[in-house]
Simulated scan of single mutants.
Amino acid sequence: MAGRRRWSTEEILDTAADLLHTSDAESFSVRKLAAVLGTDSSSLYRHFRNKTELLRAVADRILAAAMDGYRPDGDWKQRITATAQRLREAFGRHPQLAAIWGRYGSGGTGSRLVMEELLQALWASGLPEEEIPSRYHRIVILVAALIASEAGIATLTPGEYEQGMEQFRVAVLGADPGHFPALAHFAREIRPLGAAGGDAFDEILAAHLARIEAAIP
């Protein structure tokens, strides 16, 4: 009787990423992954000690793919912007995995590549060294939040999106001026979350980098 196939780490991660496209981190399990691969969970635990370690590895692959072929170019703001856009594009292709990055931060190669470039760019900005770690953390939190926000919209089904739009129209256009005067006044100009994701991402990131620039001696 032929033995079960031995799956490589890369093949396991590829299959895990595919499975996460149709589920989330909460419903994902090593048992489900093993069933898809046609093996048992114990064989996967030879590669990853637990579900968290596996999810971290999946997220790290997205980060590594985002930084593949990257070469620093331009000033410090351009470098940070280019890195953020690469992360945004990478998770835009895998929106279901965006939340995993924020929750299961990894210490793998992809994570180190991102951290190194952001820290190098801030180091080149002229900021006092003691401020660089806190500035770095704020940039990562901002970029991760913006990416997760866009991903949340991207993962909606057409039915869910239309239902949300209908609720938005009722809430905004039907607002009682007596109780919600500002909302009623601006109702025609207010757009739903995600309607201008691209512009919002660029503007918010640029504004944050401008604040950093203003703090440089």
Rank of each mutant, 00 (worst) to 15 (best):
I141A: 14
I141P: 00
L142I: 07
V143H: 09
A144W: 08
A144Y: 09
S149W: 09
A151C: 08
G152E: 09
G152L: 00
I153N: 04
A154N: 06
T155S: 06
L156Y: 04
L156M: 12
L156P: 09
L156Q: 13
P158V: 05
G159Q: 13
G159F: 01
G159H: 09
Y161K: 14
E162S: 14
Q163R: 15
Q163L: 14
G164N: 09
G164F: 04
M165Q: 15
M165G: 03
E166T: 15
Q167M: 15
Q167L: 15
A171N: 04
A171C: 08
A171W: 11
V172L: 02
L173W: 05
G174D: 03
A175V: 01
A175H: 02
D176W: 01
D176A: 04
D176T: 00
P177Y: 03
G178D: 08
P181W: 05
A182Y: 12
A184I: 02
F186Y: 15
F186R: 06
A187I: 05
A187K: 12
A187C: 07
A187Q: 11
R188C: 00
R191Q: 13
R191I: 01
R191L: 12
P192V: 07
P192I: 06
L193M: 12
A196T: 15
G197R: 11
G197H: 12
G198F: 01
D199C: 02
